[in-house]
Amino acid sequence: MQVKDKIVIVTGAGSGIGAATAKHFAKHQATVVVSDIKEGKAKSIADEINNGGGKAVVVAANVAKFEEVEQLINTTVEKFGQLDVIVNNAGIGPRNMTKTGEYSLEDWDSVIAVNQTGVFYCMKLALQQMMKQGHGNIVNLASLAGLKASLNNLSYSASKFAVVGMTKSAALEYATKNIRINAVCPGYTESALLSKLLSVRPDMDQMLKSVIPMKRYGLAEEIAEAVVWLASDSTKFITGQTITLDGGTSL
């Protein structure tokens, strides 16, 4: 895929889909800024990339804090002179999955802050830089939960529907500016979020697989391939799209 020498930020890159995406960009010769709220995890991924012959640096950031996102973007541009791609992957789920009437204010506030407001912060600041340099590419991580109902999961569902809407609105605004904005919507994927859910409700494993036509969970590497493809020069006429990777679940 055509991402060689591109400067790429991946948020939430310390594990799961973010880590797989960072490594996949590096495999295709992009320079990756590995960002995560947990600096130690980000460093581990960056070290793996660099030890394997790729190029990566670490910039820790909590995307829910505007000043930390500013520092992430500014540090990247100061070091490399530009920002070609940002992958807004950082995300969390609620501590407790429950019906809307019993949903905690803490779970609402924390999930919206990271998954929705954090994506807005990253898009806002990345777009300012991309307008200055005359090009750019944004890939947002939404979810199948941003396309269809998700029981007992209000804040997560609301945040991912918002990511889909923000992706489409911004893509329309910047379509003539040589800036493309797309989203991927993974279904049930092997990740920390899914592991957390199954640790609380192990009985859900077979139930979830039963609604996936392929009868398995997605792999982080499979999502990463779609992200890198959307960020590459192979997809110059694609913008404002949501690519669903769910093994057929939405069917």
Rank of each mutant, 00 (worst) to 15 (best):
M1Y: 11
R216P: 01
I86A: 12
Q71Y: 03
Y174C: 15
V139E: 00
A126H: 03
S150Y: 10
T117G: 02
K132E: 14
E173H: 14
G18C: 08
A90V: 03
E222A: 13
E102P: 02
R95H: 12
G12A: 11
A113E: 10
M130L: 06
G240V: 10
D109C: 04
S169I: 14
M207L: 13
N182D: 12
I138K: 06
V32K: 02
S157R: 07
A60C: 06
A226I: 14
I112M: 09
E221Q: 11
D109N: 12
L245I: 15
D5R: 09
S110W: 00
L72C: 07
D233Y: 11
Y217L: 08
K209L: 14
S157D: 07
D233Q: 07
S210A: 09
G218T: 04
G101V: 02
S250L: 15
V63W: 05
A13P: 00
M207C: 01
S199D: 15
L198S: 04
I92E: 14
A142N: 00
K41A: 14
P94V: 12
S232D: 03
M130N: 01
Q206L: 09
N140V: 01
L105Y: 09
A226D: 03
V200I: 08
V85D: 03
L245Q: 04
V139Y: 02
T76R: 10
A142H: 02
I45K: 07
E67H: 05
D233I: 11
P202D: 10
C122Y: 04
G14P: 04
A192Y: 02
R201K: 09
I243G: 02
V59L: 08
K23G: 05
G218M: 01
T11R: 00
M204I: 07
T244I: 11
L127W: 08
V59S: 01
M214N: 05
R201C: 04
T189G: 09
A175T: 14
V85I: 15
G16E: 05
L83M: 11
S155M: 05
V34Q: 11
A220V: 11
E225S: 11
T249I: 07
E48A: 15
K132F: 02
S234T: 09
N88F: 08
Y188T: 00
G218I: 00
G53T: 15
N115V: 04
Y188D: 01
S210N: 08
M123E: 12
A171R: 06
I37R: 15
Q29K: 15
K23R: 14
Q71G: 01
P186I: 03
V8G: 05
F66D: 12
I45C: 09
S44E: 15
Y156I: 12
E190D: 13
A61G: 01
V228W: 04
K196M: 11
G165N: 09
V34I: 07
S232N: 05
E102W: 02
A149T: 06
I49L: 14
M97S: 12
G54M: 12
K132R: 11
Y174A: 15
